[in-house]
């Protein structure tokens, strides 16, 4: 009796282990929900709105993938993660993908066992200070107390920057952007440093945003993008091409407004392949033929998502800059859909 219970337990463990090792794409389809890791709250990039619905530029990538795979952008379970626990959550399988302003670096790609699938925002590390501090450049920050999010590349960039400039500083390690905001606004630190886009997002939420300024120096390259576990190529392809679909749609002039009309068929073969009316790119990815249509219907093309969440018309007020299409002098460039 006891023996059989024990064997049963082992068998159950074996079955569970077997299930976990199947492809993530099959898991997502079987569970009918995408588990997406996002930040714990960053205005414009990932934050719940007043109805508790997650919105933002990083969230749009989650929604796009859900729309591509499950046909419904709301079939997403958002897992808010601090920068400290995000990698553990991904490698342990707690989430299917991470879209959380994560910098693509060699060591993370090669050593941590993740695959980065592209860049949805080209960023760099900046410094924010109060205007009345009278500081005009990062080189005047010798001896300053600096709030920094722990467990990020910014921590290492900061150490390098101050060392190479022969300056000293007092780091105050912080776990979440809400804590950083509290410490910075009460003057417990002189400077707040993180990705420039996040600084702009933070400043937008300050009561007196114009009393603060972002210093001109950008001290690092921070290409931010979604990532998945290494060794699951079919799933990686789905997320990669979903992001590319958003970027390519802007280049091809496909947007929410003309989507229905273009889906009926056009003279442009690349648009037709994109829409699934020609060729079988959906099948190659293991998705429905109209997957890309679902993506654009859900979140719009890259430019639309950008303007909606973080663009110049929003409180965040970021300009396209490096994130414009390659045809507009930016770095956004999707490989061809064929």
């Amino acid at each position: 009796m006891k023996k059989s219970v024990l064997l049963g337990t082992f068998a159950a463990v074996g079955v569970m282990a077997g299930a976990a090792s199947a492809g993530t794409l099959d898991d997502v389809i079987a569970n009918d929900v995408l588990k997406c890791g996002v930040s714990t709250g960053q205005a414009g990039f990932a934050a719940p709105d007043e109805n508790g619905r997650w919105e933002g530029f990083d969230v749009a990538v989650c929604r796009a993938v859900a729309a591509a795979v499950l046909g419904d952008q709301d079939k997403v379970q958002y897992v808010p993660l601090s920068s400290k626990v995000r990698f553990t959550a991904l490698s342990s399988g707690e989430i299917d993908m991470l879209s959380r302003a994560t910098t693509w670096t060699l060591s993370r790609d090669a050593d941590l066992g993740f695959t980065f699938l592209g860049v949805n925002y080209y960023d760099g590390q900046g410094f924010m200070v109060r205007k009345d501090l009278g500081v005009g450049s990062a080189t005047e920050l010798d001896g300053a107390t600096i709030c920094i999010t722990t467990g990020t590349t910014t921590e290492l960039n900061l150490a390098d920057y101050f060392r190479s400039n022969g300056m000293s500083y007092e780091p105050v390690p912080i776990e979440t952007s809400a804590e950083a905001r509290g410490q910075y606004l009460s003057g417990a630190c002189d400077v707040y440093t993180t990705d420039a886009s996040a600084l702009a997002a933070q400043r937008a939420t300050f009561e007196n945003g114009d009393e603060h300024m972002v210093l001109p120096e950008i001290i690092s390259k921070e290409p931010l993008g979604p990532l998945v576990r290494e060794g699951d190529e079919p799933w990686g392809d789905v997320v990669r091409w979903t992001l590319n679909a958003m970027i390519a749609a802007e280049e091809l002039g496909i947007n929410r407004g003309n989507l229905e009309e273009l889906a009926k068929g056009t003279n442009n073969p690349e648009v037709n392949r994109f829409m699934g009316t020609e060729g079988n790119i959906g099948e190659m990815l293991g998705l429905e033929a109209n997957w890309a249509v679902n993506v654009i219907a859900a979140v719009g093309n890259y430019g639309e998502a950008f303007e909606e969440h973080i663009g110049e018309e929003t409180a965040i007020g970021l300009s396209r800059g490096l994130n414009a299409q390659w045809t507009q002098g930016g770095l956004m460039y999707s490989p061809p859909f064929r």
Partner: peptide, 8 residues
Amino acid sequence: GITLNQTG
């Protein structure tokens, strides 16, 4: 904390 994060 930081070591764990930076080295994975």
